[in-house]
Amino acid sequence: MQFFLEVLLGGLLSGIMYSLVALGFVLIYKASGVFNFAQGAMVFFAALTAVGLHDMGLSLWLAVPLTMAIMIVLAVAIEKIVLRPLVNQAEITLFMVTIGLTFFIEGLAQAIWGASVRKLELGIEDVPLEFLLDNAGIAISQFDLVAAGIAFVLVAALAIFFSKTKVGRALRAVADDHQAALSIGIPLQQIWVIVWGVAGFVALVAGLLWGARNGVQFALTFVALKALPVLILGGFTSVPGAIVGGLIIGASEKLAEVFLGPYVGGGIEGWFPYVLALLFLLVRPEGLFGEKIIRRI
């Protein structure tokens, strides 16, 4: 039972990481209707840039804000060069364009910083929390807990940003109806830049946390791919959905790997989330928290 709890908690905590990546997807999808496949590449790019700057001798306190500035520049460039010419195109075209973006950003990151794995030290040790180990006998990584805490703060901050600020309200208006938002004078382009900037920020946080845990490397983009089943579970438009979906995927893939894996040769973590999401789709295509789509003719 203790072991089960340990696996479950470990899974939930890594699930929070998925949630973070998924959050970036949801933000962009809500505001611009673009399913941004490149979110994973942005995570990779942000982490690699931060680490790269750090390795050049900058302190993290300098490297991280600088990376954020670069992410904003990237957001502006994406909006200007890629998205603006494709306004009003089919969703699927926009989706494919973000696949191209993925390759471009991944290539760019490696062209600038090289393809080798880089280590990132955030100063939080990845050791079991002694308090829990002593009292409950459960090994939970201190690092994971801190990461979860950061993720929680981030989500809370975003929630406040969306509900309390003027920009946040404009964002929600845009999410509801582009045309209507335009007609009352909300500058769509600016909103998009803001959203992509925020998504870049989320990517940076996710990238730093993932990178500190597993090293900053190309494999990060595969981790980010796992955000897709998270979105299917949670619904593409729901922030709480991204969180809950991430937790479910994180926990279930770990449980499946540990308890089911040995019977089938292991390695099922690689596909379990996708198959889970696929089965889920057949039952509830709109996701846990997504809006039901009524099709009209």
Binding site: G100, F103, F104, G107, L108, G114, A115
Partner: peptide, 20 residues
């Protein structure tokens, strides 16, 4: 390793270019 990175970039840029 620069050639493989540039290859990725060129692929990506071409996709974006053609779709637009």
């Amino acid at each position: 390793g620069i050639s493989s990175s540039v290859e990725l970039m060129v692929f990506g840029a071409l996709i974006i270019f053609f779709l637009i």
